[in-house]
Every structure is written in structure tokens, then in C-alpha cells.
Design a binder for these strands. Sequence first.
RNA 1: GCUCGGGUGGCGGAAUAGGUAGACGCGCAGGACUUAAAAUCCUGUUCACAGUAAUGUGAGUACGGGUUCGAUUCCCGUCCCGAGCACCA
Length: 858
Amino acid sequence: MSDSHQYQFQEIEAKWQQKWAENNLYSVSDNSEKPKYYVLDMFPYPSGAGLHVGHPLGYIASDIVARYKRLSGYNVLHPMGYDAFGLPAEQYAIQTGQHPAVTTEANIKRFREQLDKIGFSFDWNRQVKTCDPQYYKWTQWIFGLFFEHWYDKSQQKARPIKELTAHFEVHGNQNLNAHHNCKEIFSAETWNSLSGEAKEHLLNHFRLAFIDETTVNWCAELGTVLANEEVVNGVSERGGYPVVRKKMKQWSLRITAYADRLLEGLNRVDWTDSIKEIQRNWIGRSEGAEIDFQIQNHTQLVRVFTTRPDTLFGATYMVLAPETSYLLDICSPEQRDAVSKYAEIAKNKSEIERMADTQKTGVFTGAFAINPFTQEAIPVWTSDYVLAGYGTGAIMAVPAHDERDFEFATKFELPITAVIQPKDTAIELPLKEALSSKDGICFNSGFLNGLTVKEAINKAIEEVENRGIGTRKVNYKLREAGFGRQRYWGEPFPIVYNNGTPQLLDELPVELPKVESYKPTGTGESPLAALSEWVQHPKGKRETDTMPGWAGSSWYFLRYIDPNNENVFAGSKSLEYWKQVDLYVGGSEHATGHLLYSRFWTKFLHDLGYISWDEPFQKLVNQGMIMGEDGQKMSKRWGNVVNPDDVCAQYGADTLRLYEMFLGPLEDSKPWNTNGIEGVSRFLGKFWRLFYEGEQWAVTNEAPSPEELKILHKTIKKVSEDIPQMSFNTSVSAFMVCVNELTSLKCKKQAVLEPLLVLMAPFAPHISEELWSRLGHSDSIHTAVWPKYDEANLKEDSFSYPISINGKTRTQIAFATDADPKEIESAILENEIVLKWTEGKTPKKVIVVKNRIVNVVV
RNA sequence: GCUCGGGUGGCGGAAUAGGUAGACGCGCAGGACUUAAAAUCCUGUUCACAGUAAUGUGAGUACGGGUUCGAUUCCCGUCCCGAGCACCA
């Protein structure tokens, strides 16, 4: 390699990338006296398309932080890996006839080449791949833990199933505060007399990994079950075939047990408000009451959930979801046919169709319920605007104070009774819209009259509880997490069935068998079901579903901590050293998926004592998207993809890194601009030339002037403040200002340039390393020490005050920085420009803000 | 419809415990070096009006109000853009 006086980035970058790898520069040890820092990127799904310039945006940001932290004396864990199981690989396999393992491996290789060119400081010794049996062995093991635990609501933690069966043997399922979906009540005697099969059937309702009846998207034409993202507008994304909803038994994880803790934990993490808000909405906690209504001339009770028990006096009818099991039982003979027909149609409607129907529909059941507060008989209807899956699947309708009920009541001419007087508006009858505000006073409401909504809610619940017709109740929108996919390219379940009873396999990993065809079976089962030899296990019939894409990604951040451990998912010593992720960088599209599931798994593993913390990611930053130059999303389809390889070849990795940071705030979406990169490229050239005079290396040992020190320390201060705030665009401009100023001073002094190199090292690691070595260092710059700024160098003797008259700046006058405000005041009042503007009038007031501004009020 | 962000030059964007709006870069215009080009460097660049010019005056951070000596920053209202949720009782 030549020691050219020119900035030959291609040679320089290739040389250092190779040296860093040879020296294992970024490999990190778990044994260190230094404080730890764990900075993580969301690992990529290795698609066939490779990376475009939008992908590395977050990686560059986190790499800067990782390098900055290392220079600041931290032991930094900064790993990378691949989320390698998933649908696209499987689809690609079906299309091309190549095994997904083969295409995935090829894609990973390509990703790695692209990543390597950008000069990241990943510790590749810790790489994980979710499709690697040595990795998914532990994914299966954690699934097994979920299977073998239940949730104790009193202790607010997961406990072993053994402790649950011990309780059953003594008390049945009474005196138990478990999170479950068991509808039966049984005694110890009953439990003890049950067969193993029957016991298992009951236990399924308590296990944290359990078999649930869920609705799936079934596409008959494709002969397969589709994921939600594969269904667009009610038809399959591929082919456009009709998709229907079908009930199916599959594995689920009981995430709802953790709903409250998932909410509470959000208050303890440093995430954006928007992501926290999305998760809160998704969990959807609402407080209210469950209340039983009696049906006239019938023994059936209708239990409803309401958040507004204060409006009970205004409940003028009821609505049951069409799926309600006892719907036909309460119907009057005349109405039964109509109700049954309506329920049938509603059941076959897809979610999309239901949403598309903005008009309310419904049928009267012929039954009447008694409003427990007014004692009036109110009609019971059925309508699909009441969702079977939420609350009790039945509501008391208060049309005066609920928009949906109002719409329905208006359409079917049901009575509307107002019971809340809104705070500032008079009620005009008949109502033109529902008065849904919670700001008001009860009237027409018996014992609730005169109370505020908030007071009345509590009083009504107390009354309902006293009468024994209801209880206080909290509901969640959050659903159990479906955990089965009828696909090939995923983790097999470590489960076999014996007479339908699931049993955990303990020889892990259960390896994914090779198959001839990954095509759908046509029956809706996974392609694994066609492998009759594999399915027959000595202990029973294997589960043929595989785990969803999010299984492996729900805990990968723990495996990086101890990636090669063969005895446990990660050793406790290493876990205790690295603990939770300090900084996590990735896209916001994972708000309700990966980020929620990871929190759930972390809390579960915490309950079991494997880890001491219960939130996986302390700080979360969502990088924005980089759009194409046309302002559209970067994609093959628009032909606007910019490949980082090309940018590296033309301008170098350091320019790419700097430019991506310079584009704007990390979190914002912004368009790529090919012209703009020239400016950054020029800047690096100018930076390089700071060390040269023509073709001659020109760095001197002269002592720096105060002015030069000021420039340097100003930059140290700015960059040291910017990096922790992830404000990288302003750091880059600070570097530009610094280099511009040093260039005009012709400063070639090592005492100034050397610290500047260290400041630049996290942003532009190659050029900094090269110049550092040309300064004569044999150690890597990336093991140097971050410079500290000295306030003494930033001191100014004088400040040029902007002088404004009535708030408008008219001139500037310099005063000593320690000048007395009174001196300044009398001095400026004699200034000719000030005199010109005051026009001889006496100023009413003169405001002097020290070292900021002077304002003269006339 | 509801919730959360956000509207600053031709463009990407700086500056908010209220204190010189437009840093830095792109683009554009002019110039230096060169036979020429590339590279590099220098000067100017919010808008309008006046002036040959230095410069001066006025307006200006989506729009309309308010608080303040002073508002891009704080408060109220309106409009627009983006993201999320969407019959969740």
C-alpha cells in the first residue's frame, strides 16, 4: 500500500477493515472491570433484495454510540445477527425450488458482505441466526417453560404447573387466583378421580403455552392458512383468491396474564411517547363493571361489561353479539328464525366485511331484560356491532351517551333517555347526537342524581356489588398471542401428542427435517404433516405446526450475551454482567409485535429467576425511513433503490456514514439526495488536507494558540453533548465548522488535530484510523481515550451585544463579558445609532441580559 | 372520528429553562488557478422595495389572536401534512 498524500478511501477502508478483523478489535469479553454498555440493533431479516441505504441508518447511529462509549471507557456489547426464519424465504423456496436453508444462507452471506463494507464495530463472534438448531434449541426450551408454567395473579408471577396440580389435589380449582380460561369449577375429589387425559384437558386452560381455538385466514384456492399481512382487502395477496375465517386449534401464549405488568413497565423505560402510546392502546385496559341482567320469563342472565355504570338509568335496550351461545334460547318463537338467519350471516362475514359495513344492522330477539336500576323491561337485540371477543360479548345500550348505541337506536327507533347533563351545554330534545362526554352531572338517575360521572361510576358499582348483581372489572383489548403457523420454515414444536394429550419432548433441539416439497398440503396443515415417518415419534404423534416469526426474535438479545453456551440459553454470570439492553435502535413498525413480545418473554424469564431485570430495552430509539429521491419508499418497484455498495465504491464508507447522519434527525423520515453526498465527500477531503501542505505531510509540534484551542474545545463540547442525545446531524456540521475554521487558520498542529481525530473516529472510523497511524501511533485509534473539553479554553473576553430598540436589532456593541449591566446601559444610551432610533426621547426601560442582549424600550 | 407527532429560504435542515431566525450542507450566481477540464479555493445567496455601490427601509418561522421589554419557542382558535388506532361498550 502506498503512502499517498491523497485521500484514497478505497485502499484505506479495505486495509483497516481487514486489520480490524484480523486483530479481533471489536471482540468483547464478559470479564471486565469497566462499566458495561449494551447497544443493540434490531437484527435484519435476510431478504434476497439485500440492503439499501435506508437499512444501515440505524446501524450507523448505534455504531457511533458503541464506538463513543468504548472511547469513553465502557466495555461495549454491540452484536449483530439474523432473524432468519420466516415466510418470504419459504415463498421464495416454493417459487424457485431451492431449499429455504440454502437461499437464507446465501442471503446472509450477501448481507454480511454489505455490512462489512460500511465498517461497523460488531462483535461477529457473537452472531446469532434464529434458524440455527443451536439457537432454536433454546427457543424451543423457552416454549417448554411457558408450557410448564401458569400465572398466579396473587403473587403476580408465573409458577410451575406442579404447584398448580398440588393445589388441585387439595382444593380443586377453588381458592385459586390464577389467570386462566377454564369455565368449569371442580373439587379436589373430582380432580383426583380424573384420567390423565382429562386432567391435561383442564390444565390446558392454565398453561402459559396452551392450545386455543383461534380464527385463521383460510384460503381454499392456495390450500393454506395465511398470515394477516398476506391478506389484503379480504383476498390473498398472492393470486387474489378469496380468504375466509376459519376456527382452528393452535398453540397460543397467554400474554394477557401480563397485561397489567406490560402497561406498568412502560412507565419505567425511556421510549418515545408514540411507541408507548401505541402499546397502551394495543393492550387497551379499561376499568368498569360486569353486571347481570335478568331476562323476563327466563332463567338466563345476560352479563354485560360497561365502563359507564353511571349511565345505567339510561340503558334502554341490550345487544348480544350474534355469536352468543344462548342467543337462540332466549328468543321468542316468532323471532327465532330471523335471529338465527342474522346470526348465520354475521358469522360468515369476514372481519374486513364487518369493518366495511358502516351501517348498523340487527334483529330483535323478542326477549326483554329488566334494567336493575329502573326495573323497566328493555328489549334485547342482537347485532354485529357488538363484538363477541371483547368483554362478555353483550352490552347494555345507552343511546343518549354512546355514539354507536345512538346510531343503532335511531335506526331502529328505540327509546333514548338522557341521564347525564353535560357541563356547559343545555340538552335539546330530541338529541341530535350522543352526549358521550364524561364531563357532566347525573339526572333522571334516582340515587345517582347530582353526582359527577366519576363519583357516580363508583357509587353505581358499589350498589351493584351490594345487590350481588355485578362486580368491578377490568377488561383488555389485548388478545392471546397465536403461536402456531402451518408452515415449514420455522422452529418445530418440541411436542408430541398421546391420545391428543400434548407432551413436552426434552431432547432438544427438535430439528427441522428436510422436505422435498414446501408446498402447502391443501388441508391447511403444515408441510411437515406430509412427512409420515417424521410425524411418528416413539412417544407419540408430533406437532406439525411451526413457531411464528416472532418466536426467535423475542429473546435473541439474551443469546448475544452468551451465544455459544451449550448448557443454558445464557450463563447467569454473563447475564448478570451485561443485563438489559441499554440502547435499542430499530424501526417503529415493531411497536405491537416484536417489542411487546420481547417484553412479555423478558418478564416471564424474570419470574422464573433466570434474569434479574424485567424490561429488555431501557432506551429505545426509532430511526426514520430514508425515501428515494422521488420521495417514495425505496423499493425495486419504483426503481429508486440506492445500494450502499455503490455509494461505498464511489465515495467510501466514511462518506456514506457521515452523510446518512447529516441528512437530518435520526428519527425523521427524509429523502436521499445524491447531490448532497458530494458536500460530505468534499468535507472529508478538506479534513484530510488539514494534515498536508501540498504533497507534504505537514503536521507540527507547535503549541496551539488560544484561538485554535477554542475551536477544538468548542467542538469537543458540542460532539460530546450531541452523541448521547443521538443528535448526529449537528455533530457533523460541528465537524465541518471546525475543519473550516482550522483550514482558514492554517492550523497543522498535532495538539489540535489529534484530539479532533478521536472525535471523528466514531463517525468516520477508517479515515481517522489512517491519519492516526500516519501521526505515528501503532495502537488503533478505536482504543484511544475520548478528549475532555476544558471550559477555560472557551472563555471569551468580550461579548458583542445585539442592541435592539423596541425589540428590533439595530446594531451591535462589544463589552467585556464581566461588564456591569449599569455600565452597559449608560454606554449604549450614548451610542449614535441608539440615539438615532430613540429620536431624542427618553427610554422607558432598558433591559440588559448579561452576555445575551440589550433591549431599549422607547 | 379519536390519539400522538409536525408545518422555518429553491432543497435537506440549525436555533426552543423566551433573547441577533436561517448554523452546516446542497443548489444557484459570480470570480481565482488552468491552454482547457477535473479537483481546489474565494465571494454572494430569506423575500420585497430603493440605490451604480457600500448600504438603507420594511416584511418574515402554516394562518388568526393573546401573554411579554422581547415569541420559531409559551397560551387559545383555524388550516394543512404524517403516523397510530378504528364499532373494544
